[in-house]
């Protein structure tokens, strides 16, 4: 399989604080990579450096063979296109509250990706069905549960036909019922072959769904490998203590 996302010696500092130290990650097409670790350990920053919501301080990022960051400098020519190819789902959904669910899925198609309005609407209806929310399509975000909002957010990201999706703690703001709904949609995406990078605290889910798990602590990748290794038989003490604190070991 071809490597879709290639991260090399990536580092990121905010002022004097270094939150990522020379991190290497490879994500192949169709692969699910989960990033585990303590809050504040650099997981989200790593994710946000991939679609350049954060600008890395050093290292290289290559996406679909195209250099995005080279030697700490942003070299991607079409940032908008990059972000459409690598969609993102946020912890707090970030749906547009002045628009209905279906309009949330339509907007970026017509206003960023240049898809015709008719096609965008058809696309949106198909996707809102796919996440099981046809009956809620005309509701506004503040009328929806957290789980419903997150499923709309996933449909919104899918509408731009991304080749990979980044999930930044997609269930951390949700109750257990909503969490189940969202994880179900993510499982279906995984079965459909979508490439995904997931920052999560759901260890059992990570173990089931992942091809690769990365454990990040204090800005370093402590351990990396298949879930049966990193979660099932962690070698590092820090990974073990994190997993036992999560009640998953």
């Amino acid at each position: 399989m071809t490597t879709l996302i290639e991260v090399r010696s990536l580092s990121k500092s905010f002022g004097a604080a270094t939150v990522l130290h020379s991190v290497d990650v490879d994500v192949r097409a169709g692969e699910i990579l989960t990033i585990l670790g303590q809050s504040g350990g650099g997981k989200s920053t790593l994710l946000r450096c991939i679609n350049l919501l954060e600008v890395p301080s050093g290292g290289d990022v290559t996406i679909g063979g195209e250099p995005v960051v080279a030697d700490g400098r942003v070299v991607v020519k079409d940032l908008a296109r990059l972000r459409q190819r690598v969609g993102m789902v946020f912890q707090r959904f970030n749906l547009f509250p002045h628009l209905t669910a279906i309009e949330n899925v339509i907007l970026a198609q017509t206003k960023a990706a240049g898809i015709s309005e008719d096609e965008a609407i058809e696309n949106a209806v198909r996707l809102i069905r796919r996440v099981g929310l046809a009956h809620r399509a005309l509701a506004f975000p503040d009328q929806m549960s957290g789980g419903e909002q997150q499923r709309v957010a996933i449909a919104r990201a899918l509408a731009l036909h991304p080749m990979a999706l980044l999930f930044d703690e997609p269930t951390s703001a949700l109750d257990p019922e909503s969490t189940r709904e969202v994880l179900k949609v993510m499982r279906e995406l995984a079965e459909g072959g979508m490439t995904m990078v997931i920052v999560t605290h759901e260890v059992p889910f990570a173990r089931q769904i992942s091809d690769q798990v990365v454990f990040v602590d204090a800005g370093y990748i402590v351990e990396q490998g298949p879930p049966e290794m990193v979660i099932g038989a962690p070698r590092e003490a820090r990974t073990r203590s994190f997993l036992s604190a999560s009640g998953a070991a």
Binding site: Q84, M88, F96
Partner: peptide, 20 residues
């Protein structure tokens, strides 16, 4: 988060401002 949400969908700053 609204600005980021729009940006992450590939909207330009101007579009994000005007639409979101």
């Amino acid at each position: 988060g609204q600005q980021e949400g729009a940006q992450a969908l590939g909207m330009s700053r101007l579009r994000a401002f005007g639409q979101v």
